[in-house]
Amino acid sequence: MNHIQKILVIAALLSSTVSFGQLTEDPEDRRDQGKDPLRTQTPEGRPLPFGQRLRFGGGINGFRFGNPFSLGASPVIAYQATERLLVGVGASYTYTRYKGITNTGSTVPVETYNQYGGRGFVMYEAIPSILPNLYLHGEVENTTIQVRYDQLNQKASLGLTSPLLGLTYMQPISRRFGVNLTALYNLNANSSVARAIYGSSPFILRLSFF
C-alpha cells in the first residue's frame, strides 16, 4: 500500500468516526450553546434511540412512623414520546399497621393494610414558552386495599379504578430525570371506597423523581 492509499484509508476512518459521533452525540451538549437539551433528538435533528427516551424513577409514599406505621414505594417508567409529551406506567405498594393498647399498657397490632395498584398516565407540557416544565397530567389508577383485623382474625378487600386529572411541575435535573410535584383531582372521590383508600379529600398530592 503506497502513501496515498494509506492517507485515503486514514481519512475514511476519521470521517466514519466523526459521523458516528454525530449520530450518538448527547443532546446535553446543547447547554454549551445556551439552549436546553433536546428530549427526543440529537442537536443535528436525528431521533434518539428508544432507550435514550426512557425515564426511570418513582417515589416514596405513605411515610409515617409511630401509630400508625406506614411506608410505601411507587416505581415509574416513562417514555418521552415527543418534546412535550410523556407517557408512562407506574406501580405502588403501601404497608400500614395500626396498634392498640391493652389493659396492661402494651401495644398490639389491631389492623394491617396492604395497598397496591397500578396506573397509566399522560403528561403534556402545554405552554412551554410561558410556563416551562408545567404539565397537564391525566391518569387512570387501579388500587386494591386488603385489610386484616388481627384481633378478630378477619380480612376484607376493597378495589377501585379512579380517573385523575391535574397538573405536574417538573424541575429538571438532567435530560432524563427531574423532581416532580403533582396535584391531582380524583373524579371518583365520592365513592365510599375512594374515601377508604385515599381519605376524605378529593385531591392527591405526590412528590416523585423520574
Score class of each variant (00 low, 15 high):
N2E: 08
I4H: 13
K6M: 15
A11Y: 02
A11T: 13
A12V: 11
S16L: 15
L23D: 10
L23P: 07
Q33E: 06
Q33V: 09
P37H: 13
P37N: 07
Q41T: 13
Q41C: 00
P43T: 04
L48K: 00
P49K: 00
G51Q: 12
Q52D: 06
R55A: 07
R55T: 10
F56Q: 05
R64K: 13
R64N: 09
S70F: 01
L71A: 08
S74I: 09
A78V: 00
R84Q: 13
L86V: 05
S92Y: 13
Y93G: 13
Y95P: 02
K99D: 13
K99F: 12
G100D: 09
I101Y: 07
I101T: 08
T102D: 05
T102Q: 12
S106C: 01
Y116C: 06
F121Y: 01
M123E: 07
E125W: 06
G138A: 14
E141Y: 07
N142G: 12
T143K: 05
V147S: 04
Q154F: 09
A156K: 12
S157D: 06
G159T: 02
G159L: 05
L160V: 06
L164N: 02
T168N: 02
R175C: 00
R175V: 01
F177V: 05
A183I: 12
A183D: 08
R195C: 03
R195H: 15
G199F: 04
G199C: 04
L205Q: 02
S208Q: 14
F209T: 09
F210M: 10
